[in-house]
Amino acid sequence: MDLSGANLQLDSFEELATPLFDQLYNFAHWLTQNRDEAEDLVQETYVKALKGFSSFQLGTNFRAWIYRILRNTFLTSRKGLKVTMTVPLDIDEENEGPEPTIDRDTPETFLLARSSHELLQKAIDELPVHFREILLLCEVEEMSYQEIAETLAVPIGTVMSRLSRARQTLRNQLRPQLQQEAGRRIPRGMNHGL
């Protein structure tokens, strides 16, 4: 490839990759749960993506492509390997039964409306990585099911069932903490933060 072609490619890469930097870092930090490891992961992702950019077809989904590189890099890291050894990442979840619905009278609504970030962040942190990543891709990155399927390299049916189980697990984790928190807060009076 001539130099002008290489520079044109770098221009395109910079244009596509730079706006995703903050989101990639946030996602990497959630996966690694460590600032230094997140920085290493993002840096390695950019290096790999830049190196493999010639294989990326312009006009296709760059976001799903670079997130897939980040995730695969994580899974082959020491921490990622540890995770895959303890949690099956590609279990067939399509035959799971329907998720149970949540009780309407739980304190979830009350507390979540007041942005109980720490509680929620702790609960997300404690999710198994395959639930944590799919939940973040859907809710934080606002990816479509198709994009998530491309990123995780799984069928859409798996995306739907895994997402459903991730949400249910999160609700189950939150419920006792929220009830405990509500028990502490409610008698002291309603603090109308909203």
Binding site: F21, V42, L120, E139, V140
Partner: peptide, 29 residues
């Protein structure tokens, strides 16, 4: 409400200015 709360709580980590500069330099033509 749960979706919204996850979205807010999920946007948690911000890269340092130093790291941002390093990456920008590595991808700039």
């Amino acid at each position: 409400q749960l979706k919204r709360a996850i979205q807010l709580a999920g946007n948690r980590f911000t890269p340092s200015a130093e790291f941002r500069k390093r990456i920008q330099q590595s991808v700039a033509p």
